[in-house]
Amino acid sequence: MKILIVEDEKDLRETIVASLKKEHFVIETASDYLSASEKIEVYNYDCILLDIMLPNGSGLELLEQLKNQGKSGNVIIISAKDSLDDKLKGLELGADDYLTKPFHIAELNARIKAVLRRNKLDGKNTIEIANIVLDLTERTFTVNKENVPLNRKEFDILNYFLLNKNRLVTKNALAEHVWGDNIDQADNFDFIYYQIKNLRKKLQSADAGVEIEAIYGIGYKLTEK
């Protein structure tokens, strides 16, 4: 999987690279409009992370360029500007997703995986790891082909963990993802804890091949047993 990161802020670019390397992606970077335009012209990428405000040009112009080549479907816009206009324009130009800075690494990871999965040719919308299958269309969860009922939030949480397999998912990232983009989400960590406790019980009793472990009280990690 080849990913292009177009981001002018050096520190942010480097952290994203460091994070994505753990997923064993092949990563290229561009820090301004011109070098990005060149790379887009020459190579094909499975996913492009695109900042809108760039030196000597706009990410939206790059998106247009991609659209003209019929390659805009795997773009995730990352912008500090949570502007509805940009969002609409970006999605109109064929971008797959729009992520507002600041974001959690786990969130970026999940979005990239979602884009990659959507653009996979087999069209299967399931995540399969060890002996478990999560069907995103039917919203069902099976362990050893046996259905394990999950409530809505448990399903979302498990999905998020599976997209971030072996990665740290902080409570904040989880709360934000499960809650949606909201502002006063304070003290819902108890709720997250409660949901995860239930989810762990269900995984254990169904004898699932994955487990969720706590990391320093900051977050959790899903690993294969």
Partner: peptide, 20 residues
């Protein structure tokens, strides 16, 4: 608030990587 977004993003992500 706008200008704070990027530094906040970098800080969060760096700390997340550090813990990882």
């Amino acid at each position: 608030s706008h200008e704070l977004q990027t530094p906040l993003a970098i800080t969060t992500n760096k700390l997340e990587l550090l813990i990882e």
